[in-house]
Design a protein around this nucleic acid. Structure first.
Length: 547
RNA sequence: GUCCCCUUAGCUCAGUUGGAUAGAGCGUUUGGCUACGAACCAAAAGGUCAUGGGUUCGAAUCCUAUAGGGGACGCCA
């Protein structure tokens, strides 16, 4: 909560207690900044919300509260308006007070303890290590990365995790591909039909092995040889993914290997616990989990009739392990194609006795790449799906990240390449970065602002709007934490840029004729710059001093 | 067939515990650099919030039905 809205909420809470003998939580009291400034600096709808409970009309309730509000030192005027809104007009110095806070806190401005050091694990991307990351991953990566940055900034103890599926069929294929390429590299006959992954780097890696180890593996059909090729192949692919993620400014604290869950017996353990529950049964030679008892549309197989496991089994084990590692809250960021997966995973965890309310899914809707109004299905260069790397090389990391982040994940997204390539106001990233460059430009000309409790000369409408927006930064971050939609912060950045551009065009900051005013305005510009920089850092977009 | 998501200005989209006159950008029309960066700003025009019903002081927002669009439904991962 920003200082001001926090103060107002406390005030309202106390007044309600005093006058109507009501005990309300601070959470249930809403404060907002009215769009129309003639409705005050801040307003609340609390009187309307309580009308039923108190059996009084909203306006009656509001006027009952009014007197107690007037007794404070930071409110100029209170109005009872419309159907029952209470509008607050603040004294000017309580609004300008935010400048001092921002300048003193600097990089920490906006940091808050909403998360209360709760341990939360966020899993995202988790693409199979068998190829490059494509656009769907790009959206999930940008979203997950920004979300975790914001959660950390808001007092959560966050672990960012990538689950590496290094144990399934696709890894088998990868290992085989590598082995055949290895034979090819040695000039021996090889089976092209066994090469599922055609990438050049697989051949390159195979050539490396051939050089290093010679023909020692050629006639080796042991598991040891197979594991070796799988492991080396997986590492190659995962390293490539890491390079691309790094380029995209996305990083993880931990890569969890699926294979390791097998090795450490965690999969076996989870399976035997499931078998002990009353929710498994055998049918057609397979072992089933009765997920239909937990809102799934059909039961799911845990152990196939050939004795191997389905994907679900290690996945339940994985999530059990997440809880066992001590996380209070798990957030899984999945692509839309996985949505059917939620019910069975929840079911598995419930059966094992975990609280599935602590498992939260965020589903990312699909991305379409558009160019000149047409859908781009394949990369022109490679003929395959467009990768993160290609996208970043085409439009830049800042633009790519911002485009993904700026829309709610719930809706389908058309990524418009034509627009993204434009370096103009049509492209919101440049618009925001330009505002930052302007702030910097002013401050590099003159920067002798003063730090003080209030700035009496900042009193035009645009300055007040800017100040109120700056003060609402913390509230915005908390909103993101609550509903986990990071586009709110992107909108915040855009709005800040908009307010600043508008201010810049109407008022001159540096005025040699008016030194006092200049100093105060410079302090405002300085706070805007600090705030915007912090926002951009959270979005993973570069704050450029000049463009 | 079952389930999930979407439908807001000509176009692309915001609008989040239900609130005051539904907002931006693009496009269209107009105006602003002898001024701290015009990659900017100011103004105008543009709406049956897919449609019908319901809930209530109040609905783009919640419920319900219908239409249209997208996606998921394996002893694949």
């Amino acid at each position: 909560m920003s200082e001001i809205s926090n103060k107002l909420i406390k005030l309202i809470k106390n007044s309600l207690h005093e006058i109507y003998n009501l005990e309300l939580s601070e959470e249930s009291i809403m404060i907002e900044i009215p769009k129309d400034t003639s409705h005050g600096d801040y307003s609340t709808n609390i009187a309307m919300r309580l009308a039923k409970e108190l059996h009084k009309s909203p306006r009656e309730i509001a006027s009952g509260l009014e007197d107690s509000f007037k007794a404070t030192d930071f409110i100029e005027k209170v109005e009872n308006a419309g159907p029952g809104f209470i509008n607050f007009y603040l004294k000017k110095d309580s609004i300008t007070g935010i400048i001092k806070t921002i300048i003193l806190e600097e990089d920490s401005y906006g940091k808050n303890n909403f998360g209360n050091i709760e341990k939360v694990m966020v899993e995202y991307v988790s693409a199979n290590p068998t190829g490059d990351l494509h656009l769907g991953h790009a959206r999930g990566a940008a979203y997950g990365d920004t979300l975790t940055r914001i959660l950390s900034f808001s007092g959560y103890n966050v672990l960012r995790e990538y689950y590496v599926n290094d144990a399934g069929n696709q890894i088998e294929t990868l290992g085989n591909s590598l082995f055949e390429r290895y034979k090819e590299a040695l000039g021996l006959p090889f089976d092209l039909s066994k090469i599922g992954y055609q990438g050049k780097d697989v051949l390159k890696l195979a050539q490396g092995i051939a050089k290093e180890d010679g023909d020692k593996w050629v006639n080796d059909d042991s598991d040891e040889r197979k594991d070796y090729f799988k492991r080396v192949g997986t590492k190659l692919e995962l390293d490539k993914i890491k390079v691309d993620l790094d380029l995209y400014r996305v990083s993880f604290d931990h890569y969890q290997s699926e294979l390791e869950l097998y090795r450490t017996g965690k999969v076996k353990n989870a399976l035997s616990e499931l078998e002990k529950s009353p929710y498994t049964y055998e049918q057609d030679g397979a072992l089933w989990l009765k997920t239909t008892d937990f809102n799934d549309d059909k039961d799911r197989v845990l152990v196939k009739s050939d004795g191997s496991l389905t994907y679900l089994t290690p996945d339940i084990a994985y999530h059990k392990d997440k809880f066992d590692r001590g996380y209070d809250h798990l957030i899984n960021i999945f692509g839309a194609d996985h949505h059917g997966y939620m019910a069975r995973l929840r079911a598995g965890l419930k059966i094992l006795g975990y609280d599935d309310n602590k498992l939260e899914f965020r589903i990312i809707q699909i991305v379409r790449l558009m160019e000149n109004g047409q859908e781009v299905k394949m990369s022109k260069r490679t003929g395959n799906a467009v990768t993160i790397r290609e996208l970043c090389e085409d439009v830049g990391v800042d633009v790519a990240r911002y485009f993904f982040i700026s829309k709610p994940i719930i809706s389908h997204l058309d990524f418009d390449l034509t627009l993204a390539r434009k370096q103009s106001s049509e492209n919101p990233v440049y618009y925001i970065q330009y505002a930052y460059a302007r702030m910097n430009s002013i401050l590099s000309k003159q920067s002798d602002y003063e730090i003080k409790d209030s700035y009496q000369l900042l009193n035009n409408e645009k300055e007040i709007s800017l100040l109120k927006h700056l003060a609402s930064f913390k509230d915005t971050l908390i909103d993101v934490c609550k509903i986990k939609e990071v586009n709110i912060l992107a909108n915040y950045a855009y709005k800040l840029a908009q307010l600043f551009h508008s201010y810049y065009n109407e008022f001159k900051v540096i005025d040699p004729e008016n030194i006092e005013l200049t100093k105060e305005r410079l302090a405002l510009v300085k706070s805007c710059k600090i705030c915007l920089k912090n926002v951009l850092n959270l979005l993973g977009v570069e704050a450029k001093e000049s463009m």
